[in-house]
């Protein structure tokens, strides 16, 4: 299954272009043929289970690892051939935000600022304000909590006014409040025209945070597309709650175009269903819903609730990888 890239993409500038990269480590292909593009101002999700090659790919994007084949173009510059030009446009946190514990937050930022052109004290002050660390910035990093290290990591990534920000599993180790703040922060940066590349193994996260997504499994990109499109590609479920489920089922079976989910079709998120005991999951074209309701009412069955449920990316992903497993 391969979803087409969204069509209105043409007018937006491509910030990062990954073309056919492959990587072999110790005779084993870790990455086989990864292709995608990240455009200006979008939040791009990079989704895959642990071990799919997300971090290896990210390391290639920032020139920590050289690809065996293929090329990575950052704002028109080849990362491997012109790292000094290309890496100027990117800020990144690869895995954990590793900073020098024996320096203060401010000294860390100064250290990284010296490695970039045109980043002075003013810019350091600016990024400190953006991540809201004014109070503790002159303390030694070894006294920081994980959340604060994360903020400092983001601050250093923003120092060079990057056009692309790469965050590798950014919600790892954050509490729900921290995750919500991060989501808002990421959206704010994107609204200012920055592109973001966010990897995750959690679909719900990508779904909540990203505009587009590439799905990675075993070193291959299975699909690239709008998050909405990838989700919209599948038919929504119609979930029924009736006062007499047994009788209702028989009645619903007579509705044209209706199929029960139990009959070999995928099910939506189980955690969502668990909150609806006795629910009947069906697929049904939207225009047939009133017909079905009328039939139920005529048969004297009380309708407690009817709701639409979107299939999650998780389900979509499971289907893709399962399909691959069989093939």
């Amino acid at each position: 299954m391969h979803t087409q890239d969204s069509t209105e993409a043409g007018d937006k500038q491509v910030v990062l272009s990954v073309r056919g990269i492959r990587k072999r480590i110790k005779g084993k292909w870790i990455i086989e043929d990864v292709n995608f593009e990240v455009r200006e101002g979008e939040i791009f999700g990079f989704l895959g289970p642990n071990g799919a090659g997300k971090t290896t790919t990210i390391r290639m994007l920032v020139d920590l690892i050289k690809p065996t084949a293929g090329e990575i173009i950052l704002c028109g510059h080849n990362v491997q051939r012109e790292p000094e030009q290309a890496l100027r446009y990117v800020g990144s946190i690869v895995e954990n935000p590793e900073v020098y514990p024996y320096l203060t937050g401010w000294e860390n930022l100064e250290h990284f600022a010296r490695m970039m052109p045109d980043v002075g004290q003013d810019r350091i002050r600016e990024v400190v304000a953006i991540v809201g660390m004014d109070k503790r910035i002159h303390d030694k990093v070894k006294t920081y909590s994980l959340g604060m290290r994360q903020r400092l990591g983001i601050a250093q990534a923003l120092l060079g006014r990057p056009r692309l920000l790469i965050l590798d599993e950014p919600t790892n180790g954050l509490d729900p409040k921290g995750i919500k703040e991060l989501r808002e922060f990421v959206r704010m940066l994107a609204d200012q025209g920055m592109s973001l590349f966010i990897s995750s193994h959690l679909l719900s996260e990508i779904q909540l945070m990203c505009d587009r997504v590439a799905i990675l499994s075993h070193g291959k990109v299975l699909a690239v597309g709008d998050v909405d499109e990838l989700v919209g590609g599948a038919e929504p479920y119609v979930v029924w709650q009736l006062d007499d489920p047994e009788k209702g089922k028989g009645c619903l079976a007579g509705v044209p175009g209706l199929q029960f989910a139990e009959a070999g079709i995928r099910l939506p998120d189980e955690s969502q269903l668990a909150a609806l005991p006795g629910a009947i999951v069906t697929t049904l074209p939207a225009e047939q819903v009133p017909v079905a309701v009328r039939l139920l009412v005529e048969a004297g069955i009380g309708v407690l609730a009817v709701q639409k449920m979107m299939p999650t990316l998780e389900e979509l992903f499971l289907n893709m990888t399962e399909g691959e497993g069989i093939a």
């Binding site: 920032v62 020139d63 920590l64 790292p83 000094e84 030009q85 290309a86 890496l87 100027r88 990117v90 990144s92 690869v94 895995e95 954990n96 590793e98 900073v99 020098y100 514990p101 990284f112 490695m115 970039m116 052109p117 250093q156 060079g160």
Partner: peptide, 14 residues
Amino acid sequence: TTGTIKMLLTRPVR
């Protein structure tokens, strides 16, 4: 060992 090499080598510096 500390992983700071990642931060050091992802700068626009050869």
